[in-house]
């Protein structure tokens, strides 16, 4: 999987490394901004009320 991505990135090794870094940051951003905020309420830390609203 990662080897496949690496082979399909353009440029020499330095450019590939830079692009990989950008890709990783993009994935982390999407996770923190959209995926984790959606997943977090499924965990119990939000249940602090007694009427469950």
């Amino acid at each position: 999987m990662y080897g496949w991505i690496w082979r399909h990135l353009p440029g020499n090794a330095w450019v590939k490394a830079l692009l990989s870094l950008v890709l990783v940051l993009a994935v982390v951003y999407v996770l923190f901004q959209y995926v984790f905020p959606w997943a977090e309420p499924l965990l119990p830390f939000n249940d602090v009320t007694v009427d469950n609203q």
Binding site: V28, L31, F32, F36, E40
Partner: peptide, 10 residues
């Protein structure tokens, strides 16, 4: 990453 998000980033 998710643990870091829950413990720190929130």
């Amino acid at each position: 990453l998710f643990v870091a998000y829950v413990l720190f980033w929130t």
